[in-house]
Simulated scan of single mutants.
Amino acid sequence: MAALLLAVGVLVAAFVGYNIGGSSTGVAFGPAVGSRVVSKFGAAALMAVFALLGGWTIGRNVIDTMGGEIVPSSEFTLPASVAVLFFVGVALLVSNRYGVPASTSMTAVGSIAGLGAATGTLRMATMGRIVSAWVVAPVLAFWVCAVVGRYAYPYLDAFFRLDVPEDGLLVWRDTGRVSYPVGTNDDATPRQFLAAFLVVAIGCYMAFSAGASNAANAVAPLVGGGFLSASVGVLLAGAAIALGAFTIARRTLDTVGNDLTDLPLLAALIVEVVSASLITVLSVLGIPASLAVSATMCIVGLGWGRATRTVRANDALSGEGRAPMAMGSLAAERADDPRDVPRIGEEDPEELAAADLFDPAAVGRVVILWVLTPSVAAAASFALFTLAGILG
């Protein structure tokens, strides 16, 4: 019976990792695939390698936290481990069903916290540290990108001019299932090849941070309970993430269905660097956190900061001006030279507010579900393990 239950636990863990690979590949390599720098197969291969690398190195810190610091490792009996993973799997199913990216890290922590609350073993100091990071990281993501958007973005856009030819840098041959490059576009410039390198390199960095943070979501309960070693757990999570990257992620990459690819290329790279750096630092500290939450707040911050260039800080403080709130400013026409960038307070508000980057109502719905999903997971976990304690 125990062997069967362990097999179920491994299958649920693999299901969680499979869905992580499917969603994270689009976030990491959507810009690269959308600009035809790499193929979907190449994106999946890079995701598999760098997610495993992230999980194998600093991802172990997150496994240690989730597998023994939120509640003692002794609480992760085999039934409890399977139940925690079940809640994470259900959250993924719901998020996929309704097209809302639920945070697997937050859901997993909520499920473990419910277990600890029901058994009286929840370590509040650890939970306080994790929840504090959940609050601080999105705020920090917003303000870092807001500062970049207000003071640096138009100059970086004019200086680097990161773009690629509409028909791509490479000439591709499609065999039906796999595309591979057979030459380069004669119209491509060295600057555009530099842009392509940056897109791929930062996508790999994003994949590394996703693996570092998310490997624990799939296997921490099983590792914490001693049913798998940390190394075997990371390999299981890495294999499942790779499977998701090579299968269901292809549909995401077909439509380039993630928020980052709605941005200009430079903006997408800034969002990826800042959000991936935050998650990597938190993973080093052993704190599970949501890459999707940080990335979304980066998008909002970058667009808002760019839009505020129509107003000087002194005018805003004195009430003589008001910064626009529309996020379409990132798509505003770039200057041909950094020296031609208008100064703060001299830009045209109509140009910076020309289009919306995102739907505020949709963002509000996503944020509510980010809060609601781990809360529901914690409540359901608490109810289940309380009932199990009564019946046991």
Score class of each variant (00 low, 15 high):
Leu6Trp: 08
Val8Gly: 00
Val12Leu: 12
Ala13Pro: 15
Gly17Phe: 00
Ser24Asn: 13
Pro31Asn: 05
Lys40Trp: 02
Ala43Thr: 09
Ala51Val: 06
Trp56Asn: 01
Thr65Pro: 07
Gly67Gln: 05
Pro72Tyr: 05
Pro79Leu: 10
Ser81Asn: 04
Phe87Lys: 08
Leu93Cys: 11
Asn96Thr: 04
Ser105Phe: 10
Met106Trp: 09
Gly110Arg: 07
Gly110Asp: 00
Ala117Pro: 00
Thr119His: 12
Arg123Lys: 14
Thr126Met: 14
Val139Glu: 14
Leu140Ser: 11
Ala146Ile: 14
Leu156Pro: 11
Leu162Thr: 04
Leu162Cys: 00
Glu166Lys: 03
Asp167Lys: 01
Arg173Trp: 06
Val182Asn: 09
Asn185Thr: 11
Asn185Phe: 06
Asp186Phe: 02
Asp186Arg: 15
Ala207Thr: 13
Ser209Pro: 06
Val219Gln: 01
Val232Met: 13
Asp254Ser: 13
Val256Lys: 15
Pro264Lys: 04
Leu265Met: 10
Ile270Gln: 02
Glu272Cys: 09
Val284Leu: 15
Ile287Leu: 15
Thr296Cys: 08
Ala307Ser: 12
Thr308Phe: 03
Asp315Pro: 05
Gly319Asp: 11
Ser329Ala: 07
Leu330Arg: 09
Arg334Thr: 07
Ala335Asn: 12
Asp336Phe: 00
Gly345Trp: 01
Leu352Thr: 03
Ala353Pro: 08
Leu357Pro: 11
Gly364Ile: 00
Val366Lys: 06
Trp370Leu: 10
Gly389Ser: 13
